[in-house]
Design a protein around this nucleic acid. Structure first.
Length: 803
RNA sequence: GCGGAUAUGGCGGAAUUGGCAGACGCGCUGGUUUUAGGUACCAGUGGGCAACCGUGCAGGUUCGAGUCCUGUUAUCCGCACCA
């Protein structure tokens, strides 16, 4: 009888061995084939590791370990995305420097990850808050600035009226401050912006060249929101000036019965003398500005607006005079801030026209507008009517025709718009990368010289933002007042810092060469390692982090700094781990599971196995302590196979097919995010061993290798105990023979009219006639009437169609 | 409202992509070992006495549908009037 399975001893032992042997150190031998597996690096929060973290980490650890055994040079790194709000807030509250808070949290996280036995190369650990690291974040910012992609602009920020502090979006809950519950208003402040919009098209096109799960591609495309339409000039009656609008439906131009401009549109102030109800418009504008996003959502269906009295416009294609309204359903930030309204064929225009009794003209025949009193927005069917030279055309043809007409007459042009907005890049916070720009009275915004990087975060007395909304750095006059790098005159440093997204927008590059002092990473390292072969992360990062980092990478590519256009070859996403009640884990719900407890009580291998077995990797799954026990039981059963090992390096004859099938199944499933079925296959395999009460040394060896990526500690221990050579992590991944995965005899279902009536066992290469004959015999009396059709699907079933 | 997903035993979930639904695990029932509890092991476990019926619901295509098509309901996630 063998010793019992003591997970604590086994896991500590092997973690030490791996450390001592530098088992997972990435090699600098660039002649080997490479594999770069990446998981999103965590924010080291004060709560420590959550059971959600190990799910993706284990999944890619499995891939990384398997790839090493397949002979690849594997880069599987880990680091810390450590700038950010919670650390800063904790520092403010407890009067501890955020650097200390970060250091403590990182230590805790690292200890927890280490205890889970991940094969990260810790020599490549990075931390976004190290000045050696953020030096290069600042360096990239300077490149963006010099390329004209960083600029300052007035943007509204969330302002808590009670705390007198600018808030991040995530600190605003239902329109009030998360901390004090006071009202949050918009306050305009000059902020750094990055022109991600300039890369909108490249970011869409790049998606065609990469292997991302479909829903990630779809979300990115929707977020960028490309729409093709036209800009058209409407004449303002009696004026030289035109009112330019954007529309995706230029084909409905003849159906425009009024226009709407956004309340902030400059037209209103420009013609204030001619406008008879200017005061009324101003009142509406003020009301619209006060509406919070929350209220605007609530009121989405109920349209409001005021007609501009004194101004009308002329439809350029038919010369008709139409009224102009203002309404907050038109946004100043999209298109031109003005629209033509075609109520017959746009839902919002329809609602608005109905409310204010404006005329509705049908220009796409779909019978619904006039007959059923319904808006008709379908573009795939329908024929243009009431539109002179467009009559009879399809929507698509009419679009083409009208755009040609507009361009010929000089009253409009085709135009592409994006929903994507530029990236607001500054934060009025302490715990972020300082923006390496000074403002000189004479020279304006001047970038620091690269030699001055890193621009280190100075020590401050208080991390609290100031009451006027400036960053805490603004109070440090010694630091703020500096000289202009350009003219030597007096200048002030930028006191805002970068958002948390900055450090994570390029970290995958740093891992390739983390200690490089001369560059963000060496050229050779970048060329060898990039792109990331497989990147896994949460769906919540699809539109921000993933898009931002693709933007930075594409920019660096255009600058000749990196050698591939897209940073990630493959992107997958994991599902969330929910509490045992099926709800999201949270302290307030009291359903949080601490991974440390599971590691203590059941072991890291059990936790890893369970998290992989819990369900389909991309779907959310509820935690179950009983499920954990089941996985522990499985490992116990693997442990106890030691008692029934028999001699023989080969697979036994009766299990040969099963062995080859299992290798195939596990190898394939590990590549396709199907960890749950891979583990199920291994469970089924050991059930076979127990049925026979014997496992050959050859079978046992294969099992240990297959299971090793999932449960690395126990398999190393058993490997050593069985006296196999070296370590599992140094061995070679087993091969299977396709021919040997097929059983020589198969059981077939025999159906009558699609219903199962019997089963027969036949040899895999039996002829159809013979199989049918056997099927008829097996059915006996059950077969009545005449057979109209005989269907034989080899390896599957026989179906007899009877009349 | 728009976009994306999901729906299969008591529970978590499988199903070679149109071919024997319920793999694997949990739980449960009975048994063996044990002073007992737990552990471990063995047998059983979708429903129904049966014929049969069973993959959210209603239709359809097919020799054959969890899988394809049409419609519909519920739940979850993301977005918010983008002309």
């Amino acid at each position: 009888m063998t010793v019992p399975y003591n997970h604590r001893e086994v896991e500590q032992k092997w973690q030490k061995v791996w450390d001592d042997e530098k088992a997972f150190k990435t090699s600098d031998d660039y002649s080997k084939p490479k594999y770069y597996a990446l998981v999103e690096f965590p924010y080291p929060s004060g709560q420590g590791l959550h059971v959600g973290h190990p799910r993706p980490y284990t999944a890619l650890d499995i891939v990384a370990r398997k790839r090493r055994m397949q002979g690849y040079n594997v880069l599987y790194p880990m680091g810390w995305d450590a700038f950010g709000l919670p650390t800063e807030n904790y520092a403010i509250k407890n009067h501890i420097h955020p650097r200390i808070v970060t250091k403590n949290n990182v230590e805790r996280f690292k200890g927890q990850l280490h205890a889970l036995g991940y094969s990260f190369d810790w020599d490549r650990e990075i931390n976004t808050t190290d000045s050696d690291y953020y030096k290069w974040t600042q360096w990239i910012f300077l490149k963006l600035f010099k390329a004209g992609l960083a600029y300052k602009s007035e943007m509204p920020i969330n302002w808590c009226t009670s705390c007198k502090v600018g808030l991040a979006n995530e600190e605003v809950v239902n329109g009030v401050c998360e901390r004090c519950g006071a009202e949050v208003v918009r306050k305009v402040k000059s902020q750094w912006m990055l022109k991600i919009t300039e890369y909108a098209d490249k970011l869409i096109q790049g998606l065609d060249t990469v292997d991302y799960i479909e829903r990630v591609k779809v979300s990115q495309k929707n977020w960028i929101g490309k729409s093709q339409g036209a800009e058209v000039d409407f004449a303002i009656t009696g004026k030289e000036e035109k009112l330019r609008i954007y529309t995706t439906r230029p084909d409905t131009l003849f159906g425009a019965t009024y226009m709407v401009v956004s309340p902030e549109h400059p037209l209103i102030d420009k013609y204030r003398d001619e406008i008879k109800n200017y005061d009324e418009l101003c009142a509406y504008r003020e009301q619209a500005a006060k509406k919070s996003d929350f209220e605007r959502t609530e009121l989405a269906k109920d349209k409001t607006g005021v007609q501009i009295d004194g101004i009308t416009a002329t439809n350029p294609v038919n010369g008709k005079e139409i009224p102009v309204w203002i309404s907050d359903y038109v946004l100043m930030t999209y298109g031109t801030g003005a629209i033509m309204a075609v109520p017959a064929h746009d839902e919002r225009d329809w609602d608005f026209a109905k409310k204010f009794h404006l005329p509705i003209i049908e220009v796409v025949a779909g019978s619904k507008v006039s007959v059923q009193e319904q808006v008709y927005t379908d573009v795939a069917t329908g024929t243009i009517v009431n539109s002179e030279f467009l009559d009879g055309l399809s929507v698509a043809d009419a679009k083409e025709r009208i755009i040609a007409y507009l361009e010929e007459k000089g009253i409009g042009c085709s135009k592409t718009n994006f929903k994507l907005r530029d990236w607001v890049f500054s934060r009025q916070r302490y715990w972020g990368e300082p923006i390496p720009i000074v403002e000189c009275e004479k020279c304006g915004f001047v970038p620091l010289d690269e030699s001055e990087l890193p621009l280190e975060l100075p020590e401050v007395e208080s991390y609290m933002p100031t009451d006027n909304g400036e960053s805490p750095l603004a109070a440090m006059t010694d630091w703020v007042n500096t000289v202009c790098p350009c003219c030597g005159g007096p200048a002030k440093r930028e006191t805002d810092t970068m958002p948390q997204w900055a450090g994570s927008s390029w970290y995958f590059l740093r891992y390739t060469d983390p200690h490089n002092k001369e560059a963000l990473a060496g050229r050779e390292a970048l060329e060898y390692w990039m792109p990331v072969d497989w990147y896994n992360g949460g769906m919540e990062h699809t539109t921000l982090h993933l898009l931002y980092s693709r933007f930075w990478h594409r920019f660096l590519y255009d600058q000749g700094q990196v050698s591939c256009a897209e940073p990630y070859q493959k992107r997958t996403s994991h599902g969330m781990i929910l509490g045992s009640n099926g709800e999201k884990m949270s302290k307030s719900r009291g359903n949080v599971v601490n991974p440390d407890d599971i590691v203590q009580d059941y072991g890291a291998d059990t936790l890893r196995t369970y998290e992989m077995f819990i369900g389909a990797f991309d779907l959310s799954a509820a935690w179950s302590e009983d499920g954990v026990k089941g996985c522990r039981r499985f490992l116990e059963r693997v442990w106890k196979l030691q008692d029934i090992i028999v001699d023989g390096d080969a697979y036994s004859a009766d299990l040969e097919t099963k062995m080859h099938q299992t290798i195939k199944k596990v190898s394939g499933d590990f590549e396709n995010l199907k960890y749950n079925t891979a583990i199920a296959a291994m469970m089924a395999l050991i059930n076979e061993f127990y049925k026979k009460n014997a496992v050959t040394r050859g079978e046992y060896k294969t099992l240990l290798i297959l299971l090793n990526p999932v449960a690395p500690h126990i398999t190393e221990e058993l490997w050593q105990a069985a006296g196999y050579e070296g370590r599992v992590y140094q061995t070679t991944w087993p091969e299977y023979e396709e021919a040997k995965t097929v059983e020589s005899t198969v059981e077939l279902g025999v159906q009558i009219n699609g219903k199962l009536r019997a089963t027969i066992t036949v040899s895999k290469d039996e002829t159809k006639d013979a199989v049918i004959a056997m099927a008829r015999e097996a059915l006996g009396d059950k077969l009545t009437g005449t057979i109209a059709k005989e269907i034989y699907v080899p390896g599957r079933l026989v179906n007899l169609v009877v009349k």
